[in-house]
Design a protein around this nucleic acid. Sequence first.
DNA 1: CAGTAAAGTGCATTATAAAGCATTATTTTA
DNA 2: TAAAATAATGCTTTATAATGCACTTTACTG
Lengths: 72, 72
Amino acid sequence: MHFTELVKTIKERREVLQVTQERLAELSGVGLRTLKQFESGKGNPTLSTLQKLSDVLGMEVCLKIKNVGPSQ
Amino acid sequence: MHFTELVKTIKERREVLQVTQERLAELSGVGLRTLKQFESGKGNPTLSTLQKLSDVLGMEVCLKIKNVGPSQ
DNA sequence: CAGTAAAGTGCATTATAAAGCATTATTTTA
DNA sequence: TAAAATAATGCTTTATAATGCACTTTACTG
């Protein structure tokens, strides 16, 4: 997933769960400014920030082997 | 995946591919010091750093819904 | 064991993520 | 449409990630 997709995933998940940025910031311990910056596609969050947000949203950061198959 | 697992995954993948830290640093554009720090379980890499390393190793950073099933 | 390669660590500097605050813009809803 | 809620942005400060360099430690390999 590229940066943009990660942002989109977090943002959509937050919206599905009907959580505001403010609430997510509170629950995750991530600064509101940091969350806003991230969701608006700017910046370069630390792994820790990404994990805190993911956690609250019931998600997790993972690494998977890229699919480099020819017929994709 | 927790931080430790992410580290382990990157490190093991690098070793499987028989790439040295030095070579991975070169290929990914990540500083050798940064890579060393990460692999020895210290620090808190930025998403960008994690992605650069993953890319070269044929992996990608992703977000997935956590499995919170009762019988796990 | 000696020599070499690879990995880990201390220190210092630079770049930038994290954060808060105030303000503005946008969206929602009454 | 007015009011309220939510989201975005500029500015600034503080914390820390990224980096290089020199050195130590740990693995290999002859």
